Simulated scan of single mutants.
Amino acid sequence: MSDLQRATSIEEYCPTPVKHEFDATNCKKLIVYVQGDLTKIDQRAVFLTVHDLGCNHNAWVQFLEHPVMKETRERSIFIHVVVPGQDDNAEDLPSEMTFPTMQQISEDLPGVLDKLEVKLVIGLGEGAGANILARFAMAAPDRCMGLILIHCTASSAGVMEHFKDKFISWKLSSGVPSSAEQYLIIHKFGNRLVEQLESAENKESLIKEFQDRLQSKINPRNLRKYVEAFLKRSDFSSKLESKLGVETLLVTGSKASHVNAVHTMHQACNKTKASLLKIDDVGDVLSETPDKFAQSLLLFCKGLGVLTSVPLTGVDRPRMGSASGKGGLVRQRTMSMEEYDTPNLRRFSFSSITPAN
């Protein structure tokens, strides 16, 4: 495919996100990017995304541009929330502003949905953003159809997290200090970086890209405030079994820095509502194995009764009559689309996935 064809394809199916700014009770102002046509909200799956430390909505936009997300993105609407001060090239937050807590950010999300006239969403969050969305779903279960949370932690910051933070110098002159940068890289890509660099061809380039964005796009003073809010997060693990009533998929990589915290969170959840997916040999699920995460996302959504007509990549559908194909996906032409889209409401079981070499 030529560069022009590729650009046209992305523009057609993954339109440039439209920026909105809303007043908010706790955050004072929230920037939100809407990707997709809100006039078709009744015919589309609607996702609400919140990003991790050291990045913003562009991490989700980049994931959506992956070819494996083509059919999902063209049938969906994505509402990307940017945590205060984390947009590209953002100005310093007002000095008199008290940066909101994880809980306070979550409490502003229903107001954003109200202003966009969106009633129900599927939460899609990573790291600190996943923590925010879990709080949102517990407080406003009538606004959340389900949750897909990457590297989510429900506990307060552990001793090691605070220990690492002591070495982060936030005396900023230009860019993010090297100690803070190291903490953020470990937070995103996991603890065993040397081992992972030896086993993943694209790991080094992913880290370099993350470093470049930290240094060139993200305001370090504002980032510091987001990191501090995450490190000061409150523990809500005791509320999970009784309060988290929506279908939830917890996702982690086996080499992720928060893998144990994700396991602990899953143990505290209602097992009839929460599933755990651990992808082997991975630190950063979203950038290292977007294809496997995309397939898990789609499978989860099918269980919710949405995106049921989107094919699962690499999975043959049951065949009927004379329908046939050579190694590809075959749609049952003897079924009507109404019959085909009837959701299978059985619980899905997720197990570890070992990435292909």
Rank of each mutant, 00 (worst) to 15 (best):
M1V: 11
S2V: 00
S2L: 12
D3I: 11
I10D: 08
E12N: 11
C14F: 13
P15N: 05
P17G: 00
V18H: 14
H20A: 03
C27I: 00
I31E: 10
Y33H: 13
V34M: 09
K40Q: 15
K40D: 12
V46F: 13
T49D: 05
H51T: 03
C55E: 15
N56A: 03
N58V: 11
V61W: 11
T72D: 02
S76K: 11
I77V: 14
F78C: 01
H80V: 04
V81C: 08
V81T: 07
V81D: 07
D87H: 15
N89S: 11
L93C: 00
S95R: 12
E96P: 04
M97W: 07
M97Q: 10
T98I: 05
M102C: 03
Q103F: 06
S106R: 03
D108H: 05
L109S: 02
K115S: 10
K115F: 07
L116W: 15
V118P: 12
G129N: 06
A130Y: 06
N131F: 08
A134L: 03
A139P: 06
A139G: 04
A140L: 07
D142A: 14
R143Y: 12
C144N: 08
M145A: 15
H151M: 04
C152K: 06
T153G: 07
S156N: 15
A157D: 01
V159H: 15
L172Y: 13
S178A: 08
S179Y: 09
A180K: 00
Q182M: 10
L184F: 12
E195L: 13
L197F: 13
L197V: 03
N202R: 14
E204F: 12
S205F: 13
L206C: 08
K208W: 12
Q211R: 14
D212A: 06
I218A: 02
I218C: 01
P220R: 07
R221Y: 12
L223H: 09
Y226P: 03
A229H: 03
A229I: 02
L240S: 01
S242H: 15
K243A: 06
L244Q: 02
E247G: 13
V251T: 04
K255T: 05
K255Q: 14
S257Q: 09
H258F: 09
H258N: 06
V259R: 02
H266K: 09
N270C: 01
K271S: 09
K273F: 02
L276Q: 05
D284Y: 08
D284C: 07
S287Q: 12
K292I: 06
L299D: 12
L307E: 09
T308E: 13
P311T: 06
L312E: 10
R317G: 11
P318V: 08
G327C: 03
L329D: 10
L329I: 08
M335Y: 11
E338M: 09
N344G: 06
N344R: 12
R346Q: 13
S352D: 09
T354P: 00
P355M: 01
A356H: 10
